[in-house]
Design a binder for these strands. Structure first.
Length: 677
RNA sequence: GCGCCUGUAGCUCAGAUGGAUAGAGCGUUUGCCUCCGGAGCAAAAGGUCGCAGGUUCGAAUCCUGCCAGGCGUACCA
């Protein structure tokens, strides 16, 4: 029997619903639950009696009292009480919950899946234009996507991570223009640059891209070259296309390495060029026309275009919109999908891609092995050769998350609207735009980078990152800086003199600092990037979390070395007896221990909340609260010096339970824990 | 103009489905190593939750209107 919070709460709901139905003949859906402000008032509470009071025209407290009398017996719940104007508070069976959490964390119990988990979930993230080095904003995307994928897996879902590569877009074309028309380089010369070990090709392109953007402003002829170049790249043959391919593949490989430094991996790279060359759009276009989702404009400003109507995009719910009889006559809410010259817009390609994601296109890519990760994990890439065999089955998902910044909301809504127009309402519901806000530069960060803020920048107190202008913090430079700082700390503390160990620890600490920094903000919050905050190792930071686990593990290491402590209690394989647990979890001091157990028991519930709200920060905050609670405990109780063996055994059990929970949580955040730090 | 988002402590931010005394980190001030690791612990100070109404047993949270910011609304991607 499992007593983790998630299960207990659903049992409580069930029971409450049942009792209310028996007693009042009223069927309620999802009774409201809450958490009391402190453990004296209980471990969970039902707040539904207030709502019921209205319906039954009775005082909530009276209802709560009459229901309370019949809630028990219930597995996992020891006591029920009524408080205040009508809270129904539940006191859990402390020994049972503690033992259950321990069994689960120690891997003795079956892993809890927090939901039904039918079908594959696809998470698309990173998707950086392959024409320059990645910057902090891209890191936010990747870390959010990667963390979300990790917690979906924990929740029992089968997850496929895709990275969309816009290898035929204007941004790649711009860099090609730079090489060809500004630097006068040949394909071979660019190839030599890529191969040059002394040169960071992505940094080189970062600068070149900024130069090209500037050059466009001074030389209109160059803008014409840009169009030719884009066309050649889209068509896919000739030296220009070859150079585009060369650049984008080289940059993608560098982006993969950057992501890998933070522990981020992918399953599949989807290339836009393959979507074009396999005519995915043609099939999507046919489908859209067949089902009347697109309309050809014979006249007006959009004459010659295929457009999609966006009115009523929120589904059939809003029938009563009589207001727009104005001069535009509803023409306002249309989106051009096919231009008057016959070419398809970005949204069109995205519609085709998403149809494929859900297995609705009736077509598939070819696949080739692209990269093997150090741990053997295979990364695939799409190709036009659909005859190749041996690849796993990609796509065909039942849920798709797209991690893109919030500026893309409109386009995401257009894709969903297209699905509804096609009659795929179910799939439209399962398309999730995982939106997040930008990373800007704080004034001090801008200053550190030698960027002079404009007057309006000063007023807003931040500077916008701009790849186009070459303004921003390069991802690798930031990772270098944070690891370098961590290395200095690790050396200072002298935990090890082995240089390669020091480097390994510094890498883990630096990555933890950076990942946690990017995760602790909710995605709706704009980050004003500041070096001081991002490089902090104290307070609410990744290293603080790691440190907590390191301390806990250090106790076990020392415990094993003490002959007075037997192997069993030194590293408890099983929980203490029920009697012992009850004894130590009672009373004023027991309450302190109990609060730790409760917190640890809430991991699954927290993961579910993070998943449902599409908010990894929820999990990050949970990790911090758990670490704080543990550090507090650590400071107030000496485990190894405890003279009473039974009590020492219990304290070890508690340390084990919490540290296992915390390291599991850190795993979900992509944070590794070094042995020393 | 229309649409979406944001406004909480000096600074940076949490506050799921309305719930019990609005929290944390940083910074400031002050304590704590005879004790398993001080990247730590504890305490103090710091709040008209942008403003004004409304809904109800109860509002930082929901509704309306203002104010201030951001983003979007391309035959760009």
């Amino acid at each position: 029997m499992c007593f983790l919070y998630l299960e207990i709460l659903s049992r409580v709901r069930e029971r409450f619903t049942q009792v209310v139905e028996e007693q009042f003949g009223l069927r309620i859906e999802q009774p409201a639950l809450g958490f009391p402000p402190n453990a004296d008032l209980g471990d969970a509470s039902i707040t539904a009696c207030f709502e019921l009071g209205k319906q039954l025209r009775q005082p909530p407290r009276k209802i709560a009292e009459s229901v309370a009398a019949r809630m028990l017996p219930m597995e996992g719940v020891e006591r029920v009480s009524v408080a205040g104007p009508g809270y129904l508070n539940l006191y859990l069976d402390r020994a049972a919950l503690a033992a259950s959490v321990f069994e689960t964390r120690a891997g003795h119990a079956a892993k809890v899946t927090t939901q039904a988990g039918d079908g594959k979930v696809l998470v698309e993230h990173t998707s950086i234009n392959p024409n320059k080095a990645a910057h902090v904003g891209h890191l936010r995307n990747s870390v959010l996507g990667d963390t979300f994928a990790r917690l979906l897996r924990f929740a029992g879902r089968s997850v496929e991570v895709q990275n969309y590569i816009d290898d035929t877009g204007v941004q790649v074309a711009d860099v090609v223009v730079g090489f060809v028309h500004i630097e006068g380089k040949s394909v071979d010369e660019v190839r030599a640059l890529v191969a040059d070990p002394a040169l960071r090709f992505d940094y080189y392109c970062w600068d070149l891209y900024a130069r090209v953007t500037q050059a466009y402003e001074q030389d209109p002829a160059l803008v014409a070259r840009r169009l030719d170049t884009l066309k050649a790249i889209e068509e896919g043959h000739g030296p220009v296309a070859e150079m585009g391919e060369l650049i984008s593949t080289a940059i993608v490989r560098l982006h993969l390495q950057t992501a890998l430094r933070l522990g981020i991996r992918y399953d599949l790279l989807v290339e836009e060029s393959d979507i074009l060359r396999l005519d995915f759009w043609k099939y999507a276009f046919e489908l859209l026309k067949q089902r009347g989702a697109l309309r050809f404009e014979e006249s007006g400003k959009n004459s010659g275009c295929w457009v999609m109507s966006l009115s009523g995009e929120e589904g059939p719910a809003e029938a009563g919109e009589a207001g727009d009889t104005g001069e535009e006559g509803g023409e306002r809410d249309v989106k051009i999908i096919v231009r008057s010259n016959g070419t398809v817009t970005y949204v069109g390609k995205d519609i085709a891609y998403h149809l494929w994601k859900f297995g609705l296109l009736g077509r598939d890519f070819g696949y080739e092995r692209f990269y093997t990760y150090p741990d053997g994990h295979q990364l695939w890439r799409t190709t036009t050769n659909t005859q190749a065999r041996g690849a796993p089955s990609f796509g065909g998902a039942s849920d798709a998350y797209v991690v893109i910044d919030s500026r893309q909301s409109y386009l995401q809504r257009v894709v969903a609207a297209a699905f509804r127009e096609l009659g795929y309402h179910e799939q439209a519901e399962h398309m999730h735009h995982f939106a997040y806000e930008m990373v800007n530069l704080s004034l001090s960060a801008a200053e550190a980078l030698g960027i002079a803020p404009s007057e309006s920048d000063r007023q807003r107190a931040y500077v916008e990152v701009s790849g186009r202008r070459g303004l921003g913090v390069k991802a690798d430079e930031l990772i270098d800086a944070v690891i370098e700082k961590a290395l200095a700390e690790v050396r200072d503390r002298g935990m090890t003199s082995d240089a390669s160990e020091q480097e390994a620890y510094a890498r883990m600490v630096g990555v933890a600092a950076l990942r946690y920094f990017l995760l602790k903000f909710t995605s709706r919050s704009t980050i004003a990037f500041d070096f001081k905050d991002a490089l902090a190792f104290e307070g609410e930071t990744g290293p603080y979390l790691q440190y907590s686990v390191v301390r806990a593990r250090s106790i076990f290491r020392k415990a094993e070395g003490q002959p007075a402590i037997d192997a069993e209690s030194g590293s408890p394989e099983s929980a203490p007896s029920t009697d012992a647990l009850q004894t130590f979890l009672e009373g004023a001091e027991g309450r302190e221990f109990w609060e730790l157990v409760v917190l640890a028991a809430q991991l699954e519930m927290t993961v579910r909340q993070a998943e449902a709200s599409e908010e990894p920060a929820v999990l990050a905050k949970y990790a911090f609260r758990l670490a704080q609670a543990f550090n507090n405990f650590y400071h107030h109780h000496r485990v190894l010096a405890e003279p009473d063996p039974a009590r020492r055994s219990f304290l070890l059990f508690l340390v084990r339970l919490v540290s296992e929970t915390l390291s599991a949580t850190l795993g979900l955040l992509g944070i590794e824990v070094p042995e020393h730090m």
